[in-house]
Design a protein around this nucleic acid. Structure first.
Length: 947
RNA sequence: GCAGGGGUGGCAGAGCGGUCAAAUGCGCCAGCUUGAGGGGCUGGUAGGUUAGUCCUUUCGAGUGUUCAAAUCACUUCCCCUGCACCA
């Protein structure tokens, strides 16, 4: 029961106009800093988020992708964590024992590269630090050591997370370069190797010849990711048999080898005759290619150097290694020496340049088509002729090349050679593989988007890493197991499921070790470091023991420890099992499997599949993850945040300005989970001012001792209890946008209506429930409200919907009042005068019956309804009019209330109408009405007469 | 090209067969409130029309299914993301 005990009542009368004080500068009593720090201190003192196994309670284990501390966090990062925290807090309210841990990922090269840039005094970086993150240059200078950098930013991030009120168990914090963690990762890799998932092979990478090391995107000027392009270097012997050297041509289209007509050599460029020290083979190539080839393991030495003209002047012919055709060698000025070997096999039927060059020379040949493309016979030739391109130097030729290559490779079908009938995309690989195995050709790599410069200034080159280690995600049985896991998981949003499956299908081998970077040493080659996407796949398991394992000296940790904890295998020597071993195992068994993994949506194509792959590889099925939820980005005023645009809003700055709860709410509430959301001042201000109104109301009126049992209090509670039911489902599905609407914006309009309608305001029963419902989103303010409304302790339960308090009649009654209120307004605007008297006529009971009748008759027609009405002995003259209306809007008619109920509601509303419009209100039944209009009353739509 | 997602009002973004001229927020306009501003409140925001109504056009374009389509099917155009070794 609602109103029983409060005896002492103090009547506080307020008018809606009294509430027009939402003054954002008057937040002395609404200071978010005070409220937020008050409660975060209390939470931390109560160790509320330090979660330990408790066999009596059901657990839920949630994690979010750990941050990479090479810069402070911005509001975009906050979205994933806020989502996770909201979910974690919701689960706690539902009574679960919830674990939400956090750590820092420092693996890889970006931090190293950044520290190096600081050491070098990189202006650009110092500017970014100063202008975007507010770090003065003197301080930046001190961060030249990678560890200092990590510590500085991780502290910053941790502070931000604490300010945000994330319910994290910080005891479990670690860094991915911690040695204890390294032991765990090495164990993981030994496991993968023993399972046959670790393989070695060749791998092309970008290389800096000056620094003598591999170059990733972070190591280049302008952070450009070097892209690798694979050529095929094909050996053309001289046909006279007198020269044992090969003209080594490089091509991207090895499948066109069947239609080579000649070889192009640029007569003006420096060429060399070079001998391989490995095989003794001799190649003719441009001089610039010689250096590049040595980076790719050809081990060449120069025998002779000359201009290309020399080779042409010999007048010899070459032999096609596949078709054995004898082909001439022609000069071509368009051939450049910065790409490939500087020697080109000419395929005029498919290469636009070759065609134009031959035409230029006045040579006419019978073209052999190798590839057929819909709509063309010789695509290259036809396009050139259509465009009227006359020589090799026409800039449009470049576009033609792109167009032809794209079309032919993507849609073309082979019409020549052993792969006749196959798609070009596969024929390229097959033809190439054939030539490679027969040693008729070699792979040759080039940086596709060159020039890419290393930060040291040198241009990067392509090189081939022998013995690169891979995790072999290509194994079919492994893929199947991974898919099995996905099938058992809840994927939020569900529509991304196919993306996971697609990614799992195309994942091949993933290079997992690098020569540099922070992190864990590769156990099978200590010169290498495990790269970042490979050491972050099962670290969620490590959290469960992170605060326990550190109690064991690192030197005593071995694979048996992890086997024992994670796989349940007893060590050979059972006396090894210490208290910590047992505790760790118990903790893992309690918390695992992971119940929900949270991350940004862009990780669906790499980290998240890896996460599942490695889990299914290593852990027992009962420890496979249960759920993944991914979210979109946060835009700043509609634009993507970026360093170059300078529109990054650092999280802590946002918190200082708006307060943690407003930021939390704003970054998750604006859009559905998976789509990008916009953060802008307007939205954040709107959230803040609403929150402030509620706080103000609470402060002033929550403790008022008047009985909160009036019609409007009941209405407010009825609405709220409806929302409890709905929101529970939404929380479970992480429907952030819907929750925000349901629990915040709509509740706010309820409150506005309530204030308008009530003689006095009393939120005593409303506030505790609402604060509990909202507490996952706005934990600090919710806690404050909980406290203000006279409750002790922490918000700790999810409210239960009380069906007995849900009153549909009451709600419909208010709906009617809202509608009539609006209608009066509309009419008086329309007739252009303020009402002095308003009379409302409530429709007769028989009209409601007629409505019900209409709804109950299948395949309703005018005649049918008239007949039925006649059978019920209704007043047929009027029935005709009503039936006409019914037939028009059959789908929208409703009569939720009886005449009596409508009458009651409107009578109650009449004092409000009278006050609001400053006029006399009369509510009558249709039958009692004298006015002509009275008859036009319909259920849910009283007739209104304004005088 | 392949794979995935998407095209809705000034903007963002719901809706996914009837209650839809289309939630909500932002913006804009008008009135009120306020010392001004900010803020707040009320109403409006496709066009026309009317005592709260009704009509027409509208949800990328087109065709179809249906008594009924923003919602279903087909065709077509356009946009975004990914196609890797990068955290």
């Amino acid at each position: 029961m609602l109103c029983n005990i409060e005896k002492q009542t103090i009547e506080i009368k307020i008018l809606p106009s009294d509430l027009t004080y939402m003054d954002s500068t008057s937040d002395s009593i609404l200071n978010h800093k005070t409220i937020e720090s008050r409660w975060s201190v209390k939470w931390s003192e109560a160790k509320l988020f330090e979660s330990n196994p408790d066999p009596k309670k059901e657990k839920r284990y949630v994690t979010a992708a750990f941050p990479y501390p090479n810069s402070p966090q911005h509001i975009g990062h906050a979205r994933t964590y806020a989502t996770t925290d909201i979910y974690a807090r919701y689960l706690r309210l539902k009574g679960y024992n919830v674990l939400f841990p956090m750590a820092f990922h420092v693996t890889g090269t970006p931090i190293l590269a950044m520290a190096k840039r600081i050491a070098e005094g990189d202006r650009e970086l110092f500017d970014i630090f100063e202008n975007i993150y507010g770090i003065p240059p003197e301080q930046t200078k001190k961060l030249a050591n990678p560890t200092d950098l990590v510590m500085h930013f991780s502290k910053e991030i941790e502070a931000g997370m604490k300010e945000m009120g994330f319910s994290i168990d910080w005891r479990r914090k670690f860094y991915s370069f911690d040695r204890h963690f390294g032991k765990f990762i090495q164990w993981q890799f030994r496991k993968l190797k023993s399972l046959g998932y670790l393989v070695q092979g060749e791998h092309p990478i970008a290389w800096c010849p000056k620094d003598n090391q591999a170059v990733g995107g972070h190591d280049t000027k302008g952070d450009i990711d070097p892209e690798m392009k694979d050529f095929t270097a094909i050996k053309f012997a001289y046909s006279d048999g007198k020269d044992d050297g090969y003209i080594l041509t490089a091509t991207l289209r090895p499948e066109t080898i069947y239609a080579v007509t000649n070889i192009w050599i640029n007569p003006t460029l420096s060429h060399v005759k070079a001998r391989s020290k490995k095989t003794g083979e001799i190649y003719y190539i441009v001089k610039r290619a010689y250096e590049k080839m040595n980076f790719q393991g050809f081990e060449l030495e120069i025998v002779e150097e000359f201009l290309g003209k020399h080779l042409i002047d010999l007048g010899k012919k070459a032999k096609n290694p596949i078709t054995s055709d004898e082909i001439p060698i022609y000069p071509a000025n368009y051939v450049k020496d910065d790409s490939g070997t500087g020697m080109v096999m000419s395929v005029p039927s498919h290469a636009p340049y070759d065609h134009v060059a031959l035409v230029d020379m006045g040579i006419h040949l019978d073209y052999k088509p190798v590839v057929r493309v819909e709509g063309y016979k010789f695509m290259a030739k036809e396009l050139i002729e259509t465009l009227g391109i006359r020589n090799q130097f026409d800039p449009r030729l470049e576009d033609v090349v792109k167009e032809v290559y794209k079309k032919e490779i993507l849609t073309g079908v082979m019409v020549l050679g052993p792969y006749k009938g196959e798609k070009v995309s596969t024929a390229i690989d097959k033809t190439k593989a054939d030539m490679l195995t027969k040693k008729l050709a070699y792979p040759f790599w080039e940086i596709n988007n060159k020039p890419v410069y290393c930060r040291c200034g040198a241009e990067t080159v392509a090189t081939i890493l022998k013995n690169q280690w891979f995790i072999d995600y290509s194994q079919e049985s492994w893929k199947e197991k991974t898919k099995e896991c996905i099938a058992s998981m809840t994927i939020i949003p569900e529509k991304t499921r196919s993306e996971y499956l697609y990614t799992i299908d195309w994942l091949k081998q993933k290079a997992c070790a690098r020569s540099q970077g922070l992190g864990t040493k590769f156990p099978f080659d200590e010169k290498l470091v495990i790269e970042a996407l490979s050491d972050s796949t099962i670290y969620m398991a490590y959290y469960t023991i992170a605060h326990i394992i550190t109690q064991i000296p690192e030197s005593e940790i071995d694979d048996e420890f992890f086997d024992f904890v994670f796989l349940g295998k007893e060590p050979k020597n059972r006396s090894k099992i210490s208290k910590e071993w047992k505790e760790a195992k118990e903790s893992f068994l309690y918390w695992y499997p992971l119940d929900s993994r949270h991350s940004a949506g862009d990780l669906i194509r790499n980290h998240l599949p890896f996460f599942i792959f490695i889990h299914v590889a290593i852990f027992d099925k009962k420890f496979w993850p249960k759920q993944i939820a991914t979210n979109g980005f946060v835009l700043m005023d509609g634009k993507k945040m970026s360093k170059s645009m300078g529109n990054i809003l650092p999280l802590r700055k946002a918190i200082a300005e708006y307060g943690a709860d407003v930021v939390r709410f704003s970054v998750v509430a604006g859009a559905e989970l998976s789509s990008d959301t916009d953060f802008n001042r307007g939205v954040a201000d709107g959230v803040r001012s609403r929150l402030e109104l509620i706080m103000k109301l609470a402060k002033d009126f929550s403790v008022a001792k008047l009985p909160p049992c009036g019609r409007m209090e009941k209405w407010l509670l009825s609405r709220l209890h409806q929302r409890i039911k709905k929101s529970e489902k939404m929380y479970g599905q992480l429907a952030m946008r819907e929750l925000a609407l349901e629990l915040f914006y709509e509740v706010f309009s309820d409150l506005q209506w309530y204030i308008k309608r009530s003689e006095s305001v009393n939120l005593k029963h409303f506030l505790p429930i609402w604060s509990s419902l909202m507490s996952p989103f706005m934990p600090h303010y919710a806690q404050e409200l909980w406290h203000l409304s006279g409750n002790n302790g922490f918000v700790s339960d999810f409210p239960k919907a009380d069906e007995g308090l849900i009153d549909p009649i009451l709600e419909s009654g208010e709906e009617l009042i809202i509608k009539v209120h609006g209608d009066i307004e509309k009419i008086s605007n329309l007739i252009g005068k303020k009402p002095s008297k308003v009379t409302l006529y409530v429709a007769s009971e028989w009209k409601r019956k007629l409505y019900a009748l209409a709804k109950s008759i299948p395949n309703l027609s005018f005649e049918l309804l008239m007949k039925s009405a006649a059978a019920e002995k209704m007043p047929m003259k009027e029935v005709q009019n009503v039936v006409k209306q019914i037939m028009k809007n059959l789908h929208s008619i409703s009569a939720k209330l009886s005449q009596k109920e409508e009458l009651e509601a409107l009578s109650h509303g009449s004092t409000f109408f009278a006050k609001d419009y400053g006029c006399v209100i009369e509510v009558l039944t249709e039958e009692d009405g004298k006015h002509d209009k009275a008859k036009s009353a319909l259920p849910d739509k009283p007739a209104i007469v304004i005088e």
